[in-house]
Design a protein around this nucleic acid. Structure first.
Lengths: 269, 269
DNA sequence: TGCTAAATCTCGAAC
DNA sequence: GTTCGAGGTTTAGCA
């Protein structure tokens, strides 16, 4: 069975299912009325309400409210210890449980950083223990690295006559994404941004260029490569003596994938 | 009913439940075997596998693999449009569905930024439609703002004789967290970090101090306040002529909460 | 609406 | 182990 569920289990039954699932390293879904305390890198308190709790095979825990992308409380997976128990209400369960005599407690602890998450339920509407198999491959395209690869494979994306020399070369202030030699023989430093570049990108590139200039007698140019630049950044680039080259990440994907004839786009419209 | 579930529903039934839930703005949990395409700020592809899908009341969608804190694919809540349907396998459903003739499709689209998420199921193990009520209050303590408040309430946390003047005063390069006058009458600029401060914090503070110095004839000191400093930052501070004051965010919480006699810590050990 | 800084950021890679 | 940087970052606070 992929899924073992219980509707409106009593708190002991829910505790048994959850404990068992955590021990067997199975994912669990819990829907119930709970309140939550967190202490670790910060501290937080969440009043009573109905939420979805997900515990994953590696111990990762997520508490989701009915709205929003982010969990309200969580515990990252890895070295996490769990204590699950149902028992009579205690003073340490906080004053949230008004009329209830029984409480289900899930305590999740990790060290380094030391963090503790306490969840208290007075109602559990639903528990589901999952036995999932997932070996699917995940690929993310059009990353900054893909843009690098595309430029190295086809430097004319930037300008004619450009020859690439290296990439991600370390220099004093940080990293140069790509650099090469232009048709005039000048060193070209390229800073790549996958998204609209802001002034930070321009300033970073300026630092790179200065750093290279300090170690050579040759002319050094800086080119900011991005799908676009934020307002006012062109002026900053001009002041700094830098160039901008518009380049779409999706075009880079096409350059990389062209040989495969892989038309990813046809699945969308 | 808080929860309406179906075990191993056929794909049409699952589609009906999900469509209905989305229309009624109810949260849904889906467990099934699926593959996923995303196109928007980047592009991604996820091969077939068993996962947990959560759609929330505001349209937020999360696809969780059996491990890890983060969803593998997602759609933030807000202005998201959904199309849900079950139907015969089509070529646009990609080659993942090997032996299956029917496919359940969930398509999620948002504009600005334009993003499309396509989920294809060939098996649905479980669907649950939730009717949740959650008005619980969430409080996060020991934020940077809490540290500000604590210092303003009790400047001796930094040093004796310090008087606070203002906080979050805007200056040229960004913001001053807090500033005041020390017992020698010098202006004191305080940069607060809730976590171990790195060199960026020191450099930012140096910029603040320079900015203040430029607009006054008085002596100006800079103090970096944080629970700790990263290795090598003390040397940088010395070079820059800045001070460091160790301050624990939890102590700030105590200062703020003291009057209430609120002992948050007793719930943990 | 757009930008900036913080996050219990998480995650992975490099040192 | 620690540090550093990227992320489909998200989110909140403002100009």
């Amino acid at each position: 069975m992929k899924v073992e569920s219980a509707q409106n289990p009593d708190l002991e039954r829910a505790a048994d299912m959850i404990m068992d699932a955590v021990r067997k390293r199975r994912a669990v879904l819990i829907v119930g009325r709970c309140w939550v305390d967190y202490l670790g890198r910060a501290s937080s308190r969440l009043g009573r309400g109905e939420r979805i709790i997900m515990i994953k095979e590696d111990g990762a825990l997520l508490i989701h409210r009915p709205r929003g992308y982010e969990p309200v409380n969580w515990m990252p997976g890895g070295e996490v210890a769990y204590h699950v128990e149902a028992g009579p209400y205690q003073s340490s369960d906080r004053r949230e449980a008004s009329g209830c005599s029984m409480v289900l407690r899930i305590k999740s602890v990790r060290r380094r950083p030391r963090e503790t998450l306490n969840i208290f339920f007075d109602e559990v509407y639903f528990v589901s223990v999952l036995n999932l198999t997932d070996h699917g491959e995940f690929s993310l395209y059009a990353s900054e690295e893909d843009m690098q690869r595309a430029i190295l494979a086809q430097p004319s994306l930037i300008e004619d006559g450009l020859r690439m020399i290296s990439y991600e070369k370390k220099v004093d202030p940080g990293f140069v994404d790509v650099y090469g030699i232009d048709k005039e023989g000048r060193i070209v430093v390229i800073e790549i941004k996958r998204r609209t570049a802001g002034k930070e990108a321009a300033l970073q590139l300026a630092r790179y260029v200065e750093s290279i200039k300090a170690s050579t007698n040759r002319d050094v140019r800086g080119i900011l490569v991005a799908p676009g630049i934020a307002k006012g950044v062109q002026r900053l680039l001009t002041v700094l003596g830098l160039d901008f080259k518009q380049l779409d990440p999706k075009r880079c994907v096409e350059v990389i994938k062209r040989s495969r004839g892989d038309d990813l786009l046809k699945y969308f419209r």
